[in-house]
Amino acid sequence: MRVRRLVVGVMLVGLAAIGCSSSAEAGSSHVTLTVLAASSLKNLFPKIGDQFTAAHPNVGFSFSFAGTDALTAQIEQGAPADVFAGASKKYGDELSSKGLIDVFSPFCTNSLVLVVPPSNPAGIQTLTDLTKPGFKLVIGSETVPVGAYTRAVLTNLNAVYGSGFSAQVLANVVSNEDNVEGVLTKVESGEADAGFVYVTDSKAAGAAVTTIMLPSNAQAVATYPIAVVKSSAHAIDAQAFVAFVLGPTGQGLLADAGFGPPAG
C-alpha cells in the first residue's frame, strides 16, 4: 500500500514537472489553433500551418478535415474551433447568419474534373461515356460541396449533351461519399470506375488517377470561405492565421496546389 502511494506520488510530481517545463519552454502563451477545414484542403493546410508556425513559433495547429456540411454541423453543435475554412459559400453564409462565425473572406476557388483509375476498367475516355449503363460512378453526397457542384456541372452539361444526360449519368452512381477524399480513394484504389473531384485533388493524386477535364462553360466555380469562429478563445491568433492564408504566402501555396484566386 505504502509503496503504491509512493509511486503515485512520484508520478504526480513528475507530471507536474512536465506540465511546468513545457509551458515554461514555449513562453507563457503557447496556443494551439483548432482549424476545421474542408477535405479538399487536407494536403495543403498543414503546409500553410507550418509556414505560419515558422513565423509565429508560439502558435501550433490541430486540423480537422471533413466535408464542409459536417464541419458546419459540428460548429452548430458547439464543437470547439478557432477557424472555419469551407469549400462552399453556402455554408459560410449559413454559419454567419447564425452568428457562429465572423464575416468570412473568400480565399480561393476550385473547379471539378472527372478522374478514372489509370487502368480505366470501364474504358471511360470522354464525358459521353458516362451515360453507358452499368459502370461504377462515385460522387459526393448532395449536402457536401463537391457533391452539390457535381450535380450542378451535370445539369450544366445537359445543355451540351441533351436534357437526359445528367439523369443517365446519375443512374450509374453506386455511392454518395461524405467528402471528396472518399471519392478520390475509391477511384485511386480502382474500386470505382470514375468519380468527380476537385482539380486540386487530381493534381495532388498525380499518376494515381487519370484526369478528364470538363468544358469550362459547364463548370461550377467553388468559392472557399474562411473565417474566425465566434466562440474562439484565441481570436487574435486565429485572425492572424486567416490573414496569413489571404496574404502572399498562403495565396502562393494555394496557387501552387492548383487553387484559383478568390476573385475568379
Partner: peptide, 25 residues
C-alpha cells in the same frame, strides 16, 4: 465496403449519419 446509396446500400445508421452531417439534426 458498400458505400452509401439511398435505396440500395444506405442502411438506417448510414442515413442517420448522412442527415446529421448534412446539417439536418
Amino acid at each position: 465496403f458498400a458505400g452509401s446509396l439511398q435505396g440500395r446500400t444506405q442502411t438506417l445508421p448510414l442515413a442517420i449519419y448522412g442527415e446529421f452531417s448534412g446539417g439536418d439534426l
